[in-house]
Amino acid sequence: MFPLNDTESNRYGNFPFVTVTILVSTVAIFLFEVRLMQTDFVKFYILLRSLGVTPRAMMSPDGWGAVSALTSLFLHGGWLHLLGNMLALFIFSRRVEDACGAWRFSIFYLLCGLCGVIVDVLIRSDSVMPSLGANGAVAGVMGAYLILFPMGRIRSFFFAWFVPFFPQVRAFWIVGYFLLFNMLSVFDLFYTRADFFVGYWAHLGGFLACLSIFFFLRPEAYQRYFGRVGV
């Protein structure tokens, strides 16, 4: 079952400028990556090594961590990686941005991404394998959505005997499943000590950072949340 979109409208009527900007810029940067990979693979490789998060470089005081922590949020390792992150961003970030306002949401997005990167780097501190993607940031946005709109209805899609269905599923099922899946994966990695290619720890780091959403909500949304009338 794939989530498709959030069926509920914005309460504060803001156009999601930041969400759209992130979506467009991330896709544009990915297209640039693809083009570079086809035309000059060496340069592409250097780009990934330098602008992706390489834990050993980040742990070094002479490393270039602060920039790559930022730039890695806009780089992706493949079409599926990009589509997964951008779909989740498209579904969950619109209303979170609406509840925060554009500027505060952009800081929240970066903070979640950075927390994801930090947790990922601390876990695999000796690794020289760069990690890419907005995983932590998107997980943070999903977590914030779960906190603010647990009963939000997400239109989803699945096939049953070749017949397509589009049920509206409550957000807590979808985000809860995502969180549980990541936690199980992390436990699995922890016990098997296997190498991994998905940033599960970054997801959890971003998810943890979503708790800071209360520092970003516009005053009205904050009052509504604690007044129990729905953000």
């Binding site: 980040m58 070094s60 922590a69 970066l110 930090i118 601390l122």
Partner: peptide, 16 residues
């Protein structure tokens, strides 16, 4: 928020 983000960036810059 901006203080927290800056602190984390600075921490990353200093290699934790």
């Amino acid at each position: 928020a901006p203080i927290a983000l800056y602190s984390l960036f600075a921490l990353v810059f200093g290699g934790f």
